[in-house]
Structure formats: C-alpha cells, structure tokens
Nucleic acid binder design. Structure first.
Lengths: 316, 316
DNA sequence: TTGTAAGCGTTATCAT
DNA sequence: ATGATAACGCTTACAA
C-alpha cells in the first residue's frame, strides 16, 4: 500500500513538532530562520507536499475550480481548456474539467461532485436552468460562460455583434444576399445579421436561414435545404467551423467553388478556418477564461454580465 | 461563508446517528430498510453528497485520476481529454487534467500536486525521465502514454507501423519517391517508412527527410528546405496535421496543387485532415484512454507495454 | 519561537 | 440494527 509522507514525518526528520512544519509551509513569520531553512531543505529533498484533503477539510479551501462544459466536440474547447488550466495555475489553483454532454442529469451529478470536492468556484456552460437555480440556492460561487441567462453572472462573447460584423464585412465585399446556417431561429447571431440588414434597409429573406443541428456535424439534409432556396445567396455565414466545412463539401458536389463562387465566413475560428482559409469570427477564449477565474477568485460579485467583443479574423 | 451539508445534518433530519448515514451511503446491508429508504429520500431532497476530502483523508481513496499532458496544442488532445473523462466517469472516477507544456519542472510540480491530492493513478505523456523515476520511487500507480520508455508501463500507438502502412499505401498508389516532414532523425515514423523502402529494395534519399519543429507550427524555413531538394518527391508524409496544412500552403505558393501534383498523407487524423480531405493515420485515442484507465484501476501490473495499431483513414 | 490540543467530516471498530 | 468513539493529516488557538 502506498503511503505518502506527512508533516509528522518531516517533523521527525527535522527534530521539531508537526505544527512547525505547517508554519514553515504557510510562511508564518514567527519561525526561526535556521529552523525554516532546515525544514525547507528536507521538504525539497523528500519531495513533500501537504495532503490536500486534510488541508481542505480543515481550512475549507480546496484550491480547485470546477469547469463544466456542454460538450467536448467543438475544437474551440481545447483552447478553452488550455486557457483555463493556465489561468488557474497562475493563481495556484487546479481545475477539474467535466463534460455534461448536454445532459441535464449529468450536469447535476457534476455539480454535486464538485461541491463534494469543496471547489471554490464553478465555471459552467449550462444545460438546464434548474441546475443554475440549484447552484444559486446552494450559494455556490459560479459563473456562466457561452450563454446569456438573466439574473446570473455570465461572461460571453457578443454573438449579436459577431453576426453584425460578419454581415458588415460581407456587405463591404459587395454581398447583398447572405445566408446563415445554424441552430434554431432565436439564434443571436442571426439577430445580429438581421440587424445589419435592417440598418441598410435591405431585406433578409427567410429562406436564407438554413436550420441545422450545430453540435452534431451530421448534415445530410443540408443538401436538400440548400436545393430548396430560390434566390441563392452569394455568401454564407455558418454558426461554426464544422458547418462551414460541410457546406464547402456540399457546394463542391453542386459544382460550386467556395473560393470563387460563394464566400463563406464561419464562427469560432478554430484550426478548421485556418485550414480552409476562410474568414472567421473568433471568441476571445483566452480572455474569457482569465476573466472567469479572476471573477471567481477576487471578483466584485456585483458584476453580473461581462460581454466580450468578437474578433474578425480576415482571410484570403 | 458557504457551508455544505454534512452527514451530521442529514442524521439530525432523519433522527438517527451520523454513522448510520455513512452506512446507508456505502450500501452497508445491516441497515433497516425503512431507515434506509427514509435517509435516501432526505439525501435526494437535500442534494447531499459526502465531503470527499473527509472521505479521502479517512479512507485514502480519492476516486481521482491525474492526467499530465505534454502540451495542449495538438488537436487530437481534445479527443483524448474527452475519452479519458468519459472512461473515468464510467468507473465513477474524476480526472484532473494538467498541462506540463513540455517543461520538466512544471511536470514535477504537477506530480507533487497530484500526489498531494491522493490520486489513485496518473496518466502521463512525459517530459523528463527523472520525473518518471520519481514516480516509480514513490511507488505511484501510473502509465505512460504516447511515449516508449523501457522499464515503465506504457501504452502507445505503433508509429513504426504507422510509418510503414502510410508508405505502403502511397507505394500502392504508385509513389516511389516519398518525403517525410517531422522532428529529429530518430523519429520512429521515419524508421517505419525506411523499413518499407528497404523491404521493396528502394532507396529513401536523405534529402527526402525534412526536419521541422512539430509542436510549434511556425514553419517559415520549410520553404527553404523544400527548395533545396533536388529529386522532389511525388508524395509527402507529415508528422502531424498542422504540418500537412503548412505544407499545402507552401506548395500552393510554388504553384503546386496538393490534390493533383503532390499527394499528402498526415499523422493524427484530426479535423484538419477531414477539412483538407487528406488521408491520415489515426491513433485509436479512445481505446488508448480506456486501456489506460482500465490498467490503472484493475490492471495486472505485470503488463508493461501495450501497443495499439494505427488506423489508416483513406480520403479522396 | 515553539509545542500541545482541538476539530474539520468521514470510515471503521467497538459496544450495546 | 445502531450508537459511541477513534483516527486520517492538517490549521489554528492557546500555553509555555
């Protein structure tokens, strides 16, 4: 059976009492510099680190941030994970990443799990509002990412702005017929697109909105939907990179070139956009996670909604 | 100050003693069915989960697996994270993902951190052998992924086979001059490639190996290196997807089409390969992480090296 | 400056 | 079948 060292062991090696070890580790100024030096050397030699369960149990501070993500299929989550781990580490925190897979019950499980681990904060891309209510009821320190939910702390990229600047960019390239492929009609990106159209007194035809499933890249009926469009757009905005990829393939089947005939602009700017060489709307993911950690650790809890500006990454 | 429920609280609500709650939760058969039912209902109502720090401290079982990854830039790590989180969850374990960023000291820090958290196993894509020695000395339950290190438990995809089947595939498409772009010369993929050449009594020209940095996609001198090749290959194998992407861009600058003039085959099969529509060698990442978890939790610890076969994903 | 002792919320060993 | 009680390894008064 594996047995880790304890402060008691270090204390014995140093010939002092266990609390003295604790004092050294926690930088308590009352310890004799000689004792401190000795103890620190022993700690280094032995590769000792205090048991965090005991520490957490006693002091109620786990130094852990929980992150519950909606799904791990969009590639931009990798950057998110990388950013949040780094931002946490900078503050001497560890993150626990969990995948709710868009499942309400699993999300609840994860929340209970994190609470049991005494996490000091939760970053959540939520599935169900009832779980957010639970978090609030339990007085949990948490922040929502990637969603807008009133009365809860949120941090997100303005997809409305994203839709707007995407459209503006295409408009300036002389596109007046612009399609959008994405999830259901209340889609905020779509609202931004429509906003720009109305600003310019242009009409956004209903048929230019092509509804698809965004998390599942299985888009077999995309073809049918595209076929049914009477007045075909000269450009498309897609709700994410994977859809852009599928669109390009569909267009190719129809003998259309995405670089010559139809302009495509995507959301998310993952490596796919780079690979396909298409203009994309980037979320400032890194910034988002830094803010999230900052908010959870020291944030003024009166701050409710933090909106980040999307970034247009121009290509070709 | 946030205060979680404890077994004591539940006990009070149920009118029993605290150890009874523990018995109910741990499925101890000696509890009265009526009491059990009552307690379970209260637990559900209250959304109670026992404090895991206390549990870990007392029982020395944290139900946590640590995962130390070398870097989080290659996109195939996302699938890895997804897989390992899921495989762990299936066994009621939580994972803690850490990024060593290829830094020896950071790797050591992560190891100490995980030990302090009493993790029951560590999955590591290692930076430094001395840290592996430390793990062994500390009698830690761990397994290495993505690397071959003798005398330590490892699980990895056979890159030798990968190189071999990649070459075989191209050979069967009538390519006799095949280049390889990747890291230093001891590269195992390259050995597999050379093996196939020698099997067919063909010569692999030294100039067909183009050395690049694999983690950093900054390949500005790739162009120069390509220019210096006298007998230009008709096909290239790249050590990862990002290099393939850069290669395609370089070739385009030279007026060459990757689909018509030069065939490209990459390693890793991330979404980039899909986007670029190129044949790729896939690591069975999902399988790898399932094995890793299985090994750590129940594995016969005599098993030292587990080799997985790469999968050729044909495209175009 | 340092040691003694209590207590965090569990699990497990006793009794009863 | 269930209730006291000790112990896990730390932090934090309090005493010396």
């Amino acid at each position: 059976m594996k047995k880790n060292l304890t402060m008691k062991d270090i204390a014995k090696l140093a010939g002092v009492s266990q609390p003295t070890i604790s004092r050294v580790i926690n930088g308590n100024p009352t310890v004799d510099p000689k004792v401190r030096a000795l103890v620190e050397q022993i700690i280094l030699d032995q590769g000792f680190k205090p048991n965090s369960s005991a520490k957490t149990l006693r002091s109620n501070s786990s130094k852990i941030i929980g992150v519950i993500l909606f799904d791990l299929s969009n590639y931009y989550y990798l950057e998110m994970i990388k950013s949040v781990e780094k931002a946490a580490r900078k503050n001497e925190y560890t993150v626990i990443i969990l995948n709710s897979e868009g499942d309400k019950l699993l999300e609840k499980d994860h929340i209970l799990n994190l609470q049991a681990k005494n996490v000091e904060g939760i970053i959540i891309a939520p599935v169900a509002e009832e779980n957010l209510e639970f978090l609030k009821k339990k007085n949990e320190n948490f922040i929502i990412i990637d969603s807008i939910v009133s009365d809860y702390p949120c941090i997100y990229t303005s997809l409305f702005q994203g839709g707007r600047i995407a459209t503006e960019y295409l408009y300036n390239l002389n596109h007046k017929k612009i399609g959008f492929i994405g999830a259901n009609k209340k889609n905020i990106k779509l609202l931004g697109i429509k906003k720009f159209f109305s600003e310019k007194n242009l009409i956004f035809e209903n048929e230019w909105f092509v509804e698809t499933d965004t998390t599942n890249s299985n888009l077999e009926n995309l073809s049918l939907k595209l076929d049914s469009i009477k007045d075909f757009p000269t450009a498309f905005i897609t709700s994410n990179d994977v859809i852009a990829l599928n669109l390009i393939k569909e267009l190719e089947k129809k003998g259309l070139s995405s670089s010559k005939d139809i302009t495509i602009l995507s959301f998310d700017d993952t490596i796919i956009s780079t690979a396909l060489n298409i203009t994309s709307i980037k979320h400032p993911v890194n910034l988002m996670m830094e803010y999230a950690i900052e908010y959870l650790l020291n944030g003024n809890k009166k701050l409710i909604h933090k909106v980040l500006d999307p970034i247009l990454i121009k290509r070709t």
